Simulated assay, not measured.
Amino acid sequence: MGADVFGHYPGITRFACDLLGYDLPARCRDNRDDVLSRTECTQPALFTVNALHAFERERREGRPADYYLGHSLGEYNALLAAGVFDFETGLRIVQKRGELMAAASGGGMTAVMNTPADRLLEVLGADGVEGVETAAHNTDTQVVIAGADGALRA
């Protein structure tokens, strides 16, 4: 991940490594001990690689995009590309976001396909499952629910 853009932006890449405190390109390339599966590592890596791809697209096309969209972590890349904040600010926010999400315990989220949110919550309630909330509507056919581990297992 990122091998195609890290070399084009050595200054930004070095800055990201210094801010994060580790060799980001090596971590993305080698993924020792599956470190990229840990959200506190995944989020800054994805944000940085996505940012470099956006910078590359703008350099190649010679102009910014007309619109920027993002979902979940991608919202931060959209805000960066739209000029809402600079790379350092975005990376610091995303780094903290990953740390906070990694520190959360006792609950989680899961995606459910082909069941509208209201129907899903109705079915869960009829089965006595409490404490589950709709967290996101990803698509017309996918909803994300969140709750305590026990409720999600049920």
Rank of each mutant, 00 (worst) to 15 (best):
I93Q: 07
A103H: 09
A16Y: 01
G125T: 11
E99I: 11
G131N: 11
L79T: 05
A102D: 02
A146M: 12
A104K: 08
K96G: 06
Y68Q: 08
A65V: 03
E88V: 12
G21E: 05
N31G: 02
D4E: 15
N114M: 11
P64N: 11
R63A: 14
L19I: 10
A117F: 07
G131F: 11
A135L: 10
A51S: 12
A146Q: 12
Q43M: 07
A16F: 01
C28R: 00
V84W: 07
G62H: 04
A65C: 14
R153T: 14
H53Q: 10
T48I: 05
A82G: 13
C17H: 02
V132N: 07
E58C: 10
M113H: 14
V143E: 05
E130N: 14
S105F: 08
A51W: 00
Q43R: 02
G98Q: 04
R119D: 15
A102T: 03
F85L: 11
G21Y: 04
V123T: 13
F6T: 03
V143Q: 04
L36M: 08
A111N: 08
V5P: 03
Y68L: 06
E61P: 03
D66T: 14
E40T: 01
E75D: 09
D86V: 11
E130A: 15
L69P: 04
T110G: 15
A111T: 07
R92N: 07
E40G: 01
P44K: 00
D4I: 05
L36R: 01
Q95C: 12
D127M: 13
D149H: 14
L79M: 15
L73I: 10
S72F: 09
D127Q: 15
R32K: 09
R92Y: 08
T39V: 15
F15G: 03
D30C: 05
E99Y: 04
C28K: 03
A45Y: 00
A16N: 02
G98F: 03
L24M: 03
E40F: 02
A82R: 05
N114I: 06
D23C: 02
R29M: 04
L100Y: 13
E130F: 11
L121R: 08
D4C: 10
L120A: 09
A81F: 02
G98T: 03
V84Q: 12
H53G: 04
H8D: 15
L73W: 06
G128F: 07
M1S: 15
M1F: 14
L79G: 07
L91T: 04
L91S: 01
M109Y: 06
A51R: 00
L121F: 04
H137A: 15
A126C: 14
D140P: 14
L36D: 01
D23R: 01
Q142Y: 10
M113F: 13
A54C: 12
S37E: 13
G7N: 07
R97G: 06
V5D: 03
A16C: 05
A117D: 11
V123R: 13
D34C: 07
P44N: 05
